Amino acid sequence: MAPVPKVRLAGGLEICRVLNGMWQVSGSHGPVDEVRAVEAMQAYVDAGLTTFDMADIYVPAEEIFGQFNSQLKSKSSGSPTPALQGLTKWVPRPGPMDRKVVEKALQRSMAHMQVDSLDCVQFHWWDYGDKRYLEALGHLSDLQQEGLIRELALTNFDTQRLEEITSRGIRISSNQVQYSLIDQRPAARMEEFCLANNIHLLTYGTLAGGLLSERYLGKVEPKSRAELNTSSLSKYKKMIDSWGGWSLFQDLLVTLETVAKRRGCSVANVATRCILDRPAVGGVIVGCRLGVAGAGQHISDSLRSCSPELRLTEEDLAAVEAVTRRSRDLMALIGDCGDEYRK
């Protein structure tokens, strides 16, 4: 298998173009065995998938990363160890945003992750009406200059706020947003701005919590809580409902399966590659199965998605677009990226 492709962010940090998402260990996807989760990280690293995405609110994601990071170093006995990239998010509650508050939050994440500085802090803010997000970002930028943070990034900020923040001289490396064949809002405005300002998009929801897979092809629409039994499935099923409904979604799955058979890959590979090849997209975040059965197949599928051997043709993309263009306009329905969190 070819090496996992990397992308270099504005501050020089190299990350994998397929990132291991750790939302799944936050408890909203079922119980988590932390010991098994730590052990399971090794298989991802051995496969070259060394970039992990987490958040201070994904308890205990930062602690799991920290335990693995510590064990990896202790096992090395002086020999070289694979470099890990730990991207975390700071998701503060509304309140004062003086330097002490900001620094305390970063120190807490550093302690959990067992690191001396943070590779990347992705800042989220709930309410644009509360302008203290600019104060917080000012302090984060200062702390970056002092070496506490390597990359300063955002999560779920819209294009208007991206413009506002960068116009103040704050260098933003990336913005983490929802981007999939279902939700293509980043293509409307954000991609163009990001390309012009050396900002990468790190995308989540690209597989719609697993709905964009063969597993749901030809299936009756899931509606009950028992069928939509994780936060991801519930969240992205609602997005499908807004986008165009289950019947149109089935048309998309049929088309993706046709392309997948032509390319000798899975539906998830095609859905991922469609987004990975978009302008400004630096990487796609795929939820990792830490301590869950089937992780080996999951890793193989992630590697196949970013393989240079997988190439989608203009014919493939046109077939997919013929379905997606029949959907509703989510920019008109929801607003720009992240607006769903602020209504």
Rank of each mutant, 00 (worst) to 15 (best):
A2V: 13
A2Q: 15
G11K: 13
M22S: 11
Q24A: 15
H29I: 13
V32A: 02
R36Q: 08
E39D: 14
E39L: 15
A43W: 05
Y44K: 09
A47R: 05
T50S: 07
T51K: 02
T51A: 05
M54R: 11
D56Q: 04
E62R: 05
E63T: 15
S70A: 13
S70G: 05
S70Y: 03
Q71I: 14
S77K: 11
P80G: 11
Q85D: 09
L87D: 02
R93I: 14
L106T: 08
R108H: 06
A111H: 03
Q122H: 14
R132A: 09
S141M: 05
L148G: 09
L148I: 09
A153I: 15
R168Y: 06
I170K: 10
R171T: 12
I172F: 01
D183V: 15
P186Q: 04
M190F: 11
A196E: 15
H200M: 13
L201F: 03
Y204T: 04
G205I: 01
T206N: 05
G218N: 10
P222D: 03
K223A: 10
S234V: 10
K238S: 10
M239L: 10
M239A: 15
D251I: 04
D251N: 07
L252H: 01
L252R: 00
E257F: 01
A260Y: 01
R262Y: 07
N269E: 11
T272I: 10
I275S: 09
A280H: 00
G282H: 01
V286L: 14
L290F: 06
G294F: 07
H298W: 13
I299G: 09
D301R: 07
D301H: 07
L303Q: 06
S305V: 12
T313D: 08
D316M: 03
L317Q: 09
A318P: 03
R326N: 11
R328T: 11
D339W: 13
